[in-house]
């Protein structure tokens, strides 16, 4: 059984936010607008978080692309009263939109603040409406959503592999963010499969996970900057 994971090399990330855009387009993440941004009500499935250190002229900004950590022991699934967020056999933490009652308990339980709530009915710019991805359902108002490791791409890859009567290959299933990253900072694959790059990368001494000490066992690894 695969255990899907992601490795983000912070040394390669230049903060271009292509992953954010690719994710938004791929997953029909609503564009909430400037008003929502002022009210802290934007929705991101993948967000490049920035931290600026030092004073001019010694200023340094660091980037941290932050998807859902896809914890092996997710605090969010435990607290959901209706099984609207669940972890599947391959370790992907899913959201079941038609079941979510919108209590936001999972959002509060998540230590990474990666769960977004639809405070209003999702809206899309008129020009992008024809380009909505038919493989991903849009969400109604009042439910939680978050990164799913582009789970629909896994289903498509499986179907394709089955049709071609061959096993699933590493490059068959890649989330939109990893696909779009121009510097190759994001790699994706099966952490249990020694043939996949991610399985080797997590052995790197630079590898760490966010808030590892909480015991949530995230499957998103970061490679620390060398400097």
């Amino acid at each position: 059984m695969p255990r899907w994971g992601m490795v983000i090399d912070l040394d390669r990330c230049n903060g271009c936010q292509a992953c954010e855009i690719a994710c938004r387009v791929e997953n029909n993440v609503p564009v909430c607008g400037p008003q929502a941004a002022r009210e802290n009500r934007t929705i991101f499935w993948m967000q490049v978080v920035t931290a600026t250190h030092g004073d001019w002229p010694d200023v340094r900004t660091r980037f941290l692309p932050r998807p859902c950590m896809q914890c092996d022991r997710p605090p969010c699934t435990a607290v959901c009263p209706v099984r609207a967020t669940v972890i599947d056999a391959e370790g992907i933490v899913a959201q079941v939109y038609p079941r979510c009652i919108g209590c936001r308990y999972c959002a509060n339980a998540c230590p990474y603040t990666v769960k977004s709530f639809n405070w209003v009915r999702p809206s899309y710019p008129e020009s992008t409406k024809p380009m909505l991805n038919p493989d991903v359902s849009t969400r109604p108002a009042g439910v939680i959503e978050k990164c799913t490791f582009c789970h629909h791409r896994l289903q498509q890859a499986r179907d394709k592999a089955r049709a071609e009567e061959r096993p699933l290959r590493e490059e068959d299933y890649v989330p939109a963010c990893a696909d779009a990253c121009p510097t190759g900072a994001i790699t994706f694959g099966d952490l249990e499969n020694p043939g996949h790059r991610v399985a080797k990368q997590v052995q790197d001494p630079r590898a760490f996970r966010l808030l590892e000490e909480l015991g949530t066992h995230p499957k998103v690894y970061y490679l620390a900057e060398e400097r």
Partner: peptide, 17 residues
């Protein structure tokens, strides 16, 4: 967010919550 689904707490109850 979805008060219309409040009964899901009983219908789909998740005992660890």
């Amino acid at each position: 967010g979805r008060p219309d689904r409040v009964l899901y707490v009983i219908l789909n109850g998740q005992p660890w919550s």
